[in-house]
Amino acid sequence: MKRAAFTHPWMPVLLLIPQLTIIVFFFYWPAVEALRSSFYLQDPFGFGGTFVGLENYFTLFQNKEYLRISLFTVIFTLSVTFFSLAFGLVFAVKADKVLRGASTYKTMLMWVYAVAPPVAGLLGVSLFYQGHGLITQIFALFGYEFVVGVNYKDTAFAMIAVSIWKQVPINFIFFLSGLQSVPRSIREAAMIENGSPFNRFWTITFPLLAPTAFFLLITNITYSLFDTFGVIDVMLRSEPGNNPMTLTYKVYVDGFRGNELGGSSAQSVILMVLVLALTVFQFRLIERRIHYT
């Protein structure tokens, strides 16, 4: 709040009402409802539900399939986050360095940001198409038969590859803008000090990029957990079967397909706790970052 502020009897209320109304109806109510129904066992035929306490949670943690999906989600999140950050960083460092064509490269490496995840999934489907997909054929050259949708590992690989492709641009944009905000004096001092470009990067540039990298780490984890829904749904052609899927996709499958409300809500709540932990972690980092600058 500014020191020089207005005072008015009803103006601020009027300004806040639209936002607050939407939030109460479409944020707080559903969130509370998810929490509440996670403690109930829903009757599949009607409205009745029995209070079962934490039973839905216990059932989940004993469910082998749920544990398998959790494990896959961890692997998926780690690979997508790691590789899309790595590619984004490499491209940004190079794009920051070259003198010619810098703006063309920048455009070429960032436009995929605007491609919707399910569209990326569809592109993935045609590239990994059984038999004559481009990437399938490349694998065939090495004598490996790649079958998306049948082989668990192949499907996982394809999903991860597509999700990385979709996420590289945003990391590129942030790393590049981070690099370009490194003061020239620091760069020049580093040049005079000399040392190999490799050393210079790890001792000077990377530490200066660290805040950006931390911010992106959280963004990428959130992306892998939630925004990849479209990629996964399209690549599985809405038929999950025994294929790999993430926890978010499982919430959807159980809630809308399986009509297993209590279990699905409990899964939602677990995800909520996960995101909450991540965001609190992120806020603390941002706070610390403000102290630096």
Binding site: V251, L271, T279
Partner: peptide, 30 residues
């Protein structure tokens, strides 16, 4: 939030910014 001084200002702020914590996907069914 930024330009007015009123009661419940801090409360409104927190009510609004808590929503940053949870994406739509986790409360999709309700």
């Amino acid at each position: 939030i930024v330009y007015f001084r009123f009661r419940f200002a801090t409360f409104s702020f927190w009510i609004i910014f808590t929503t940053l914590l949870l994406p739509l996907e986790v409360r999709i069914l309700p």
